[in-house]
């Protein structure tokens, strides 16, 4: 039977036909407009006005935040956060998911255990790791070092270590959940592929490289973008663990934006910096997707 698309009537007839759907979606749509779009629009507008919101100042706020002596430092630190998060936090969930996929017993227990840190609030995790990293003998890491007769270290106070240590605390919280998502993806792979590979003599490593990783690749790329985006906005962890120190070694763009708003009451500059951050993330994401497509080709 040949299907012929029925020419749909426009308003009001079509609207009346879908009226139930419109009515159902209306609250969510209104909430989205009020809670998301309106603040974004107002924030964007605010960046072009002075802090009183009365005088149009053009791009002055953008010039101020970009010419701030801390901007380059914060940008560099933020990039370091992203790089360290990719180094520490991107591979670990993949490995854990692959290992879990090989497990036969106690999978539910392990999945629950891995998921637990995710439900702990960010601020609590930050404080927990702050105590782990305490520089005197009361810090957990230094207590462990003490058991082996090693002298305590200053951890977060070492400017070279601050960012990777903060990333470790973030990874501890987030990798379990990501692993479970990867695991769900892995469990969608046809087991016959593994069996066939095993019959052909492929070991665990070869099966992983030839079957598992290619299957997971789109998801890894998706999580990669998401990780870059979320780590680029990092603010709570350095604020609660180091205050941006020592000597701004852990200052991120997000924290700098927070300082403009809440320490100096310069909201317009804070919003301007957030918009600059938005453009940077957009640029990075576009490059990432473009590179990914090129690789696929």
């Amino acid at each position: 039977m040949k299907y012929t698309a029925k020419k749909r009537k426009f308003l009001p007839g079509r609207f009346m036909q879908d009226v139930s759907a419109w009515v159902l979606i209306a609250p969510a749509l209104c909430a989205l407009m009020l809670i998301c779009w309106r603040p974004i629009f107002l924030g964007f507008k605010m960046a072009f006005f002075d802090n009183d919101g009365l005088k149009y100042v053009g791009l002055d706020n953008f010039k101020l935040v970009v010419s701030d002596v801390l901007f380059i430092k914060a940008l560099k630190n933020t990039t370091l956060y992203v790089v360290w998060s990719l180094i520490i936090g991107m591979g670990l969930p993949v490995v854990v998911a692959i290992l879990m996929n090989e497990l036969i017993h106690a999978t539910s227990l392990i999945k629950s255990s891995l998921y637990l840190p995710q439900i702990v609030p960010v601020i609590a995790v930050s404080l927990l790791w702050y105590f782990v990293y305490l520089p005197d003998g009361s810090g957990l890491l230094n207590s462990i070092l003490g058991l082996f007769g090693l002298s305590p270290r200053v951890w977060l106070q070492d400017a070279r270590l601050t960012i990777p240590l903060i990333i470790i605390s973030m990874t501890w919280r987030g990798f379990g959940f990501t692993s479970i998502l990867y695991l769900a993806s892995l469990q969608g792979i046809n087991r016959e592929l593994y069996e066939a590979a095993a019959i052909d003599g492929a070991g665990f490593l070869r099966r992983t490289v030839k079957i598992t990783i290619p299957h997971m690749y789109p998801m890894i790329m998706l999580f990669g973008i998401n990780q870059i985006k979320s780590v680029f906005n990092i603010m709570v962890e350095p604020l609660s663990m180091t205050g941006g120190g020592p000597d701004n070694a852990s200052l991120s763009l997000g924290l700098q934006s927070y300082r403009y708003a809440f320490q100096y009451f310069r909201m317009s500059e804070s919003v301007a910096l957030s918009i600059v951050m938005w453009f940077i993330i957009m640029g990075v994401t576009v490059i990432y997707i473009y590179a990914d497509k090129k690789l696929e080709q």
Partner: peptide, 18 residues
């Protein structure tokens, strides 16, 4: 003032950690 204190915070952190 707050901006000055912020800069001095960094100086103090520097001399106390390095």
């Amino acid at each position: 003032c707050q901006e000055l204190y912020s800069i001095l915070d960094s100086c103090i952190q520097s001399v106390l950690t390095n």
